[in-house]
Each structure stands twice: as C-alpha cells, then as structure tokens.
Amino acid sequence: MTDEPGVEALAAELRRQLAGRLEKDGPLRSPEWRAAVEAVPRHAFIPRFYRQSDAPGVTTWEPVTPETVGQEEWLRLVYSDETWMTQFDGRDIDWTDPKPISNATPTSSSTLPSLVTRMLEDLDVHEGMNVLEIGTGTGYSTALMCHRLGGEAVTSIETDDGVARRAHEALAQTGHTPHLLVGDGRSGHRDRAPYQRLIATCGFRSIPPAWLEQVTPGGVILTTLRGWMRSLGLVKLIITGDSASGWFSEDAPSFMIARQQDAPESLGMVPEPEAGTKRKATYGPGILTSSGPAFMAQLAAPDARFFSMPVDGGPTGTFVLDSVTDSFAVLAPMGSGWQVRQGGPRRLWDAVESAVAIWEEYGSPSTAAFGVTVSPDGQAVWLGNPSGPQWPLPS
C-alpha cells in the first residue's frame, strides 16, 4: 500500500462511492457489510493486476500498476466493480518488468465486488459464527469477513503457495489475522471444525463429502457448481444431518474451477470419420452456448467438452467428446438442419437433447428453478422439487 500524500484519502472516498453503488444496485444490503467495504482497502490486495485489452485478435491481457496508468487511474480501476486478473497458468508474474500476456489461462483473480458482497450477504453470518473459506485468492474477501467477524472466526484455504503468500502479506499489512492454510480445499480443515458457514470462491464439480462433515446441522454451504463446459451457478445448501439441499441462484455467476478438478489436458480421441451411428439432430450446436440449454447440456454430459473444426474435410462441425468414457457426438450441417453422429458407451447428444426437451417442457425456467440434494447415496441436481427430473453430479 502506498504512503503518497492524498492516495489514502482518495482510496477512502472511492471505497465510500463503491459501497454506495453496491447498496443502490442491490448486492450490498446490510450496514455491517457496507462498513466492511468502506473499511477494507482493496488496493492493498491488488497493488498490480491485469485487465483484458480491447485490441482485436488473440485475447491479450495488459498490466495495470500505479506506474503504468498513474496513481489516480490505478485506484479508480481498483475500486470499480470489475474482476481483475492476478495470475495466469498457475505461474507467478514478474512484476519487475511486466509485459502483456497472450494465449494464457487466468488462474487467480480479484472477483468483482458486487459478486463478493452478494455472496457474503447470502452467507447470512452472525456474530460468533465460525466460517471456512475455500479459495483465499488475493485475500480481499477474507479481509471483509475478518472485519465483520474478527480474524479468530475466519479460516481460509488456498491451493497455490505464491497466491497464499501474497494474501498473507496483504492481510497482515491491513491488520487482519485469519487462520490461513495452503492445501486442497476439498478436504476442508478438521482442526478448526465445526463451522457454521462455508463459502467457496472457486467452482466445484460436486460437493466434497468433508464439507458436510465439518459444517454443523443448520449450517450453510455457499459454492459455485460447474463442469468442464461451463458454470452451473451459485448454490446455497442447508445442512441436515449427513445430507444437504438447496437452490441455485437466479443467475449463473462463474468462478475458476478448483485446480484439483480441472479438466484433463486431452479432450479425448477424435472419432474416425465412419465411427458411430447417424441421425437427424433435433437441436444444433447452438444450444451449447445458449444460457438455459447450455446449463442443461452441462448437466446431461458432465464429463464432456466441445470444439468446432471442419468435419471429414467438409464444412465446420462441432465435436462433443467425453474423455472419461470415450463417448462422442459429432454435429455436421445437413440441409437446413444438423446431423449427429454418436458412439461410445453414452449417447451424448441423446442425453443433451433429452435434458433440453425437459427444460422446455417445464417452461424454459431460469436456474432458480433448480435445486441440489447431497446425501451419502449420491448428489443430484433436480428441476422443480427433489421428486422432479434429476441429473447426477459427478462423484
């Protein structure tokens, strides 16, 4: 954090403005969390970061520091409601001579404050509660919880050593003393259990069993469920004994997937031109990128990913490959519609089309119509109620 005259005063004013916008727009609903937003200096947690360039062509990220854009502009960017990238491909950045970065995958960030505060509000914490955070990241959300509950009540786990080290330094610098750990968040942290609240700031393919064991009955788990194709969305689960259930939120905010659950490097084997059986497709590949249908496709084919390229030397088609079962579906243009060619243990496109048809039958609802049940017997997403149509989550 800089000590230049006027910088801290400007930062304090920008925090007040940010809190006012978040309160006006809805994510910030309580005076306790507003006080935290006004008090915690976000610029201490992201002194340097990357933003996406507007230049056409390959996606490129450009460095933002007080030196590259000036102190005032840097602060205004810090206190805007934006997500800023702080790491790519799991590697530390050399900030002695930062360069634009292209062809890289973001692996750590400071999430936009509206989503951070919305999740903290939804967590419904009260004084005296013990909270476990999965994914310390920059430490900004950790600091907000420390301001609200005190450092003794907050335990936070980060999987990346470098990210954890920088968060620890920023938290110490700002006077916050949570219990910080480096490890696999799926295991939680038994030594400080039980917890009344658990919040995850990275995405998971299913709910880790350890979380149910470490959160008390009546407690809350707030996390993002996602797959290898897309995010399913934010879900709030209430613990009942050794089980939990709850609903997705209205929209589908997305976090980076937990590194231990990232997709395999290989997409799977591209099928031979004559492999599989063909039929006319009811839906084309556009459903894989349309909000509601894509949600259903992720549920129906949890281990699949897709890409487009010319099919058999002809026009561009879409390949849907399941690297776990080696199942495939290849969609190719056919007249005014599409033909699908499928093979392997699972008929992927049959499953996707069936799920989309059910979604349409129920009136094409938002994600808020879906819930999740987690029990020792398995985990499933359901539509309407726990007795409605169900799709299992991967174990």
Rank of each mutant, 00 (worst) to 15 (best):
R190Q: 11
G162S: 14
D94R: 15
H126D: 07
I199C: 09
T159D: 00
I199S: 11
S109K: 04
A167Q: 07
R186W: 05
A172F: 06
T174V: 14
V163C: 07
L181H: 14
L112D: 03
T136A: 04
P209R: 09
E127D: 13
H176N: 13
Q173W: 12
I134S: 05
H147F: 10
S206N: 12
R165W: 03
L144P: 01
T86Q: 12
T142D: 05
T96Y: 09
K99F: 01
E158H: 12
D89A: 10
A153V: 05
D97G: 14
V78E: 01
E121P: 01
D97V: 09
S156I: 06
D160T: 11
T86I: 12
S109L: 05
H189K: 07
E72S: 11
E169H: 14
S187V: 06
D191Q: 14
H179Q: 10
S102C: 05
T107W: 00
T107Y: 00
W84S: 14
A170Y: 13
S156L: 04
R76I: 06
T83V: 07
C146I: 09
L181T: 09
G137A: 00
G150A: 01
P209D: 01
P113G: 06
C146M: 08
G150M: 01
Q87D: 02
A153W: 02
Y195M: 07
Y195I: 05
A200N: 12
I134R: 10
P194E: 04
T174P: 05
D184F: 10
H189V: 01
L77A: 12
I207V: 15
G175W: 02
E121V: 02
H189Y: 10
M85H: 09
M145S: 11
M129P: 02
T96S: 15
D122E: 14
S156K: 09
E169P: 03
L198E: 04
L112Y: 09
L132F: 05
Y79P: 04
Y79V: 07
P178V: 15
S110E: 08
L120D: 05
V125F: 02
T96R: 15
M145H: 10
E73N: 10
P113Y: 10
S156E: 02
L198N: 08
D97Q: 13
T107G: 00
R205V: 03
F204T: 05
A167H: 08
T105W: 02
R166F: 04
A200C: 08
D92T: 14
C202E: 01
G135R: 14
T201M: 00
V125I: 11
H176F: 15
R148K: 13
S109M: 06
S114T: 10
L115A: 03
H168E: 10
Y195P: 06
E127Y: 13
D94L: 11
T105R: 14
L115R: 13
M145Q: 15
G135Y: 03
D81Q: 12
Q173F: 11
H189C: 06
G188P: 14
Y140N: 01
V163T: 15
V163I: 15
A210I: 09
T142L: 08
D97A: 15
D94N: 15
T201W: 08
T117N: 08
R192M: 06
T142Q: 12
H126N: 04
G185V: 12
V78T: 14
